[in-house]
Amino acid sequence: MQRIGMVIKLNADKIDEYKRLHANAWPDVLDMIKKCNIQNYTIFLREPENLLFSYYEYTGDDYEADQAKMAADPKTQEWWSVCMPCQKPLDTAKEGEWWVEMEDVFHLA
């Protein structure tokens, strides 16, 4: 199992919309997340900085292939198209990078 942590900014004027979207996440998108070997997926919000932190556990054997499978899914692409306007990459994100992966420095099981 691989633990993944990522961070991105949330636009202040989109906080309520983002919360509403995720309170009613689309079943097809949730199913695709599971089909791509992701479990225990959680998104946290830190205000007033408006930072989103996501955590999930990857249980598959080929992370890149599962991520590509998810990215190719039309329903997931549609979901991202409504969520992405709420988000803003960190100033330190690389070209083309959206959610930025974080280093796993400590874990207590």
Rank of each mutant, 00 (worst) to 15 (best):
N11K: 15
Y58D: 01
N40H: 14
Y18G: 02
L52D: 02
L51T: 07
G96M: 07
L10G: 01
K35W: 06
V105A: 07
N40L: 03
F44Y: 13
V105D: 06
K75G: 00
A109Q: 13
E78Y: 09
A68P: 04
A23V: 03
V105L: 10
G60V: 05
W79R: 07
Y55T: 06
Y41L: 07
D73Q: 11
M32H: 02
T59H: 12
N24D: 14
E49C: 04
K9M: 07
W80R: 11
E17C: 02
G5M: 12
M32W: 00
E57L: 12
D13W: 01
C83L: 09
M6V: 06
P48H: 09
K14E: 11
K19F: 02
I8S: 09
P27A: 09
V7R: 15
Y55E: 06
Q87T: 11
D31G: 05
V100T: 15
P85H: 01
V82P: 00
D31N: 13
D104A: 12
D73G: 04
A109E: 13
E103F: 07
E17W: 00
E101G: 10
D73S: 05
D31F: 01
V7Q: 15
V29Q: 02
A12W: 02
G60N: 06
P27H: 10
L52S: 01
S81F: 01
L108P: 00
D66F: 03
I8D: 04
I43C: 09
E101H: 07
V7T: 15
W79A: 12
N24T: 14
G60A: 05
Y41M: 08
M102D: 08
T59M: 07
H107S: 15
N50L: 05
N11Q: 13
M1P: 15
S81R: 01
